[in-house]
Simulated scan of single mutants.
Amino acid sequence: MRKNLFLLEELQQLDLKIDGCNGERQSLLDQMAELDRQVEEARLLVDAKRGELALLEEEKQGLEASLATEEENIARSEVRQKEIKTQKEYQAVAKEISAARKLKGELEEQILQKTGQAEELAAEITAREADLASLEENMGTRKGEIQEGLGRIDRELAADLVSKETTTKAIPANLVKRYQALREKRQGIAVVEAREGNCSGCNMNLPPQLFNSLYRSENLVLCPHCQRMLLLRQDVQ
């Protein structure tokens, strides 16, 4: 049993190392996903601003078309005004011209506002495009580093999985099954040392008779408190 316990401890060290590699691997994958998210968010923001600018330009063009129409109306009314014979008709046309000129002024003001807004938005888009380009460049560098890290981890995992398979085959299947069940229940730690009368897994005192039975190494001994497998290093005791 002692030999099997040492093999289980070796298996546990491999499992813990594999757990750590998988955790590190997932962390790198999460970092890569976050980089993609940041770039996509920046790209969507630039696209949204471009959409705003296109809408502004469309509104501005509509105002300019309305302005051109009013200018034509004014010009026609001014020509017609020169041909009018009666005072009443003259005043009516003059009133039309005045209203058209007022609307023209309002349209010009609105066009000026739209022009200013478009210029500000265009400047913002230029700045955000520069930020996006910088982010994409930095992301490319960081992704390269992450890929290198993933490659290293994958190589380590491949070697550890081979070692795990070899070690597992050297242990009775029923013992491996029990070890795996304990690992799931005890945060990955199924085999612990018994030291100075205590379980190093839960730090509880072990009954003297149980502790003494570890020296015989005949049967599997579990901690009565945490149920972990107890291993005694006699050269240390």
Rank of each mutant, 00 (worst) to 15 (best):
Glu71Pro: 05
Asp47Gly: 02
Ile125Met: 02
Gln113Met: 14
Val46Pro: 00
Gly149Phe: 01
Leu44Arg: 10
Gln87Ala: 15
Gly151Cys: 07
Ser98Asn: 13
Asp131Met: 08
Asn22Cys: 03
Lys49Pro: 02
Lys88Pro: 02
Leu53Lys: 14
Gly51Thr: 08
Leu29Met: 12
Thr141Gly: 10
Glu64Ser: 02
Glu109Met: 11
Gly23Asn: 06
Arg50Met: 10
Arg152Ala: 12
Gly140Lys: 12
Ala33Arg: 06
Gln61Thr: 04
Ala68Pro: 01
Lys82Gln: 13
Ala33Ser: 09
Arg80Lys: 14
Gly62Met: 04
Ile125Ser: 00
Asn73Trp: 01
Ala130Ile: 07
Lys143Met: 07
Ala92Met: 14
Leu44Ala: 15
Asp131Tyr: 06
Glu148Ala: 13
Glu106Ala: 15
Glu71Asp: 08
Gln31Phe: 00
Met32Lys: 11
Gln147Phe: 09
Leu132Trp: 01
Val39Pro: 00
Lys95Cys: 11
Ala133Ser: 12
Arg37Asp: 07
Glu96Val: 12
Lys88Thr: 14
Ala75Tyr: 12
Asn22Val: 01
Gly105Val: 09
Arg25Asn: 02
Gly151His: 13
Asp47Lys: 15
Lys49Phe: 03
Asp47Trp: 02
Leu55Arg: 13
Gly149Arg: 01
Thr141Trp: 05
Gln26Cys: 07
Lys102Gly: 03
Glu109Asp: 08
Glu57Ser: 10
Ile74Lys: 08
Glu124Phe: 03
Leu63Cys: 14
Ile111His: 03
Arg101Trp: 01
Gly151Glu: 13
Gly23Leu: 07
Gly140Ser: 14
Lys114Ile: 06
Leu35Asp: 00
Ile97Gly: 03
Gln26Trp: 08
Arg43Trp: 03
Tyr90Ala: 09
Asp47Cys: 04
Gly23Ala: 05
Gln61Cys: 05
Lys114Met: 13
Lys60His: 06
Leu121Arg: 09
Tyr90Cys: 10
Glu24Ser: 07
Arg152Val: 15
Gln38Glu: 04
Ile97Lys: 05
Ala48Lys: 09
Ser66Gly: 04
Gln117Leu: 14
Lys114Trp: 08
Leu132His: 05
Arg76Val: 05
Leu63Phe: 04
Glu136Tyr: 00
Ser134Ala: 15
Glu34Leu: 05
Met139Ser: 14
Ala48Arg: 11
Leu67Pro: 00
Ser27Asn: 08
Gln113Tyr: 13
Leu150Val: 04
Glu83Thr: 11
Glu136Ser: 05
Ala48Gln: 12
Ala133Tyr: 03
Ala68Arg: 14
Gln113Cys: 05
Glu108Leu: 07
Leu112His: 15
Glu64Phe: 00
Glu71His: 10
Gly23Asp: 08
Thr141Cys: 03
Arg80Trp: 03
Ala68Glu: 13
Lys114Gln: 14
Val39Leu: 08
Glu119Leu: 12
Glu34Met: 01
Leu35Gly: 00
Glu64Asp: 04
